[in-house]
Design a protein around this nucleic acid. Structure first.
Lengths: 343, 343
DNA sequence: AATCAATTCCAAACCGCTTTGGGTTTCTCA
DNA sequence: TGAGAAACCCAAAGCGGTTTGGAATTGATT
């Protein structure tokens, strides 16, 4: 059932039927009703391909999942972020186009999105400092919203981020208040912008109390469980081990816990741990009382909001790029306590 | 730059240019070269929307991420499965359309995919027993491959699955051989087909040794960390607690470990645990020696293979539906040992 | 040299919708 | 009653490709 057939059945022109269905004013309300009813009855849905060609809009948003050829990691954060964004798209009648490409092909994919007219905009994931994608997308005129920020960008651009620096500064302060002085930082890859900001928050808090940084306590890598475990095991084996850990995600935090318990120590009593918690749906931080003390910010909600910002930007191309900074809550759980010197 | 402009520049008709680029034989090789070179030089990419309308093919595959309104869980397996499938699509020039819909809207989404002509085929995730989607998709003539199987389907359909029954039977046998008699099963939701098969494997192994099932040892729920923790904590508090756990995924297994250690027990010594391991990229089961003894099967590889099957099915519509059964390896790790009676 | 086949290219139709630019009716008001 | 405005509807021209059905040219064959 297509437009022509439907209009034939109704004894109207395709023009009128199209207008009736799309809510244009130049059609009689009675006629509109009749058309609507017929469309429903015959289960008519306009062909997406034709709409897209005719309007020049793709009615789709692109997300690129970069798969690093080095470590082959699929960021577990994506699933929830995309679920959030997807809810927004579905509501607005947009499709979500997911492209899995090796990281060095990313700009090629953006270019192809553009020249093929496959999407109306994109979300940029996991920005690094001075991320080249921002200038590139601006240049080719592709609307975008960055999930995170990219220190070093000159021109304004649209972004949505968590206040990572403040969150980690507060978390560090909290540990310092508990008497901890040797605090390890188990961070993400430090070319990532979020990791840079978190480290900066950590450093600021220490500096404020006149403490010197110990580079030996600062680790940085892809945020897997194994990484958390390995880091913590090595750190706990030091002659002067840390009494607290500040961790960038629940997943390495679980690895840290494994190392701590393997050593016969107990979190919250012998060792303190604060992690960032993205509220991943399958990895809730406990049910009533949080397992880990955590800086908390829902990545799913971030996805919803970023998608809304992008759709708005597409609808109003020459608006000033919207930005939004979310604050993370500091939730006290069972993994922190006063500093104790280890036996 | 579009086809008409390019053909004008070349002094050829759009027909010839199109044919040259698409490898049709009725064009001079010299001309083809010339066209190819010009296309590259002017960075010409045919407009996807126009191709889709003209050919009637969507050049896209749909994946539906059902978000249960009850528990709001995003299956963490998706991320890796989709990454695998996405690799195949990218290589074949297909797009991946992701739709996030609440579970009761799923068939509506399939219908809309069909009538809008948005995709050429779909992957069906997480089938339940007698999954209605299979009959439905067959009826509307939408090519599909099921990731998993649906006991109870009558007509043949395309699927790719892990031999869950055999895997869990072997795992149970392994525990029995170690002397365990009270083995808890921490399963996924039991309307899911994979969970039914795993349970069946577990039951078969017990029955074979003449052991009676204890329903009190069998839990079933959405596979989150909290669920694993809660189940294990309750089970370990029983007067006659299990000495071993058989778990459906790494994520609840981590919860089980938390409960075990909280009780001051040690995995592999006091309590044995075998989990299924999907080889999630961010949650590797240890680096050299597996943390958990596990039945292992890469879900990412499954994604790659399922996508290949689907593309094949789309290219050859009246082939008999392909099927593929993957065997899981049983990897011995540090979480299993001979049965010990607890103090 | 005439004939037939193969090669090479093109004009025009088509995919299914939106949108422009009128053309009729009907209504309003002097 | 006639003019102008408003309301309602339509034919036709896109959107940017692919594909059909020739036409013109070249080559091979007798």
């Amino acid at each position: 059932m297509n437009l022509k057939e439907l209009s034939l059945k109704l004894g109207l022109s395709p023009t009128t039927v199209s207008r009736a269905l799309n809510g244009y004013p130049e059609v009689n309300e009675a006629t509109r009703e009749r058309v609507m009813a017929a469309a429903r009855r015959h289960n008519y849905h306009p062909n997406t391909r034709a709409i897209r060609l005719a309007t020049g809009r793709a009615m789709a948003i692109g997300h690129i999942v970069p798969v690093s050829t080095k470590h082959e990691i699929v960021n577990p954060i994506f699933a929830d972020f995309i679920a959030g964004a997807g809810e927004t798209y579905t509501r607005a009648g947009y499709d979500l186009l997911l492209s899995v490409v090796s990281d060095q092909d990313e700009t090629r994919t953006y270019r192809s999105f553009k020249s093929r007219g496959a999407v109306d905009g994109v979300i940029v994931h996991a920005p690094s400092a001075d991320d080249p994608r921002i200038a590139f997308l601006t240049e080719i005129g592709m609307p975008f919203v960055v999930h995170g920020r990219a220190t070093g960008a000159t021109a304004p651009y649209a972004w949505l981020d968590v206040n990572n620096r403040r969150a980690f500064r507060r978390a560090t302060d909290f540990l310092l208040d508990l008497g901890h002085r040797r605090i390890a930082l188990i961070n993400g890859l430090e070319y990532m912008d979020f990791a840079i900001r978190r480290r900066s928050g950590y450093e600021m808090a220490l500096a404020e109390r006149g403490l010197v940084l110990d580079p030996g306590l600062m680790h940085s890598d892809e945020m897997t469980e194994s990484y958390g475990y390995r880091s913590a095991r090595n750190l706990l084996a030091l002659p002067d081990p840390p009494t607290a850990f500040l961790v960038s995600s629940m997943i390495p935090a679980i690895g840290v816990r494994r190392a701590v318990e393997e050593r016969g120590l107990k979190l919250g009593r012998d060792i303190s741990l604060i992690t960032h918690d993205d509220e991943l749906s399958y990895l809730r931080n406990g049910e009533d009382v949080p397992i880990f003390t955590a800086t908390r910010s829902s990545v799913r909600e971030a996805g919803r909001l970023a998608a809304e910002m992008l759709l708005e930007l597409i609808a109003t191309p020459d608006m000033t790029p919207p930005t939004r900074l979310l604050e993370a809550e500091l939730m006290v759980g069972l993994s922190t306590g006063p500093a104790r010197t280890l036996p």
